[in-house]
Amino acid sequence: MNFALSIPLEHVFVLAAALFCTGLTGVLVRRNVMFVLMSLEVMMNACGLAFVAAGARWAQADGQIMFMFILALAAAEVAVALGIVLQLSRRFDSLDVDSADEMHS
C-alpha cells in the first residue's frame, strides 16, 4: 500500500529550518548540559528531515541513507557525550556547562 502524499517541498524545508533554529536557540540559551544535548539531538533530527524530504522529491533512496548516517552519528555522539556528562557531574557536582571552564584564562 502506498500512503505517500504529495506535499509542497518548501513546507517540509520550512519545518526543518524551524526545528533546526529552535534547537540552535536551545544550545545557545541553556546552561544545563542535558538540555544542550537534547537541543543538539533536535538539530540533527531537523537535518535528517531535510535529507529525507529531498530524497522524497525525486523518490530516491539517497535521502534515507544520509538520514541513517545521521542516526549513526547521533548515537555515537550521545554515547560519548553522556559519558562526559557523568564525569562532569562527578567532578564538579553540577550540570552547569560553565563549571568546566578551567581553560578560561
Binding site: N2, F3, A4, L5, S6, I7, P8, L9, E10, V12, A53, G55, A56, R57, W58, A59, Q60, A61, Q64
Partner: peptide
Amino acid sequence: SGEPAQTAAAMV
C-alpha cells in the same frame, strides 16, 4: 524557497 516543487507521492 525556490520554484514550487512537490514531493513525489511514491514510496521508497
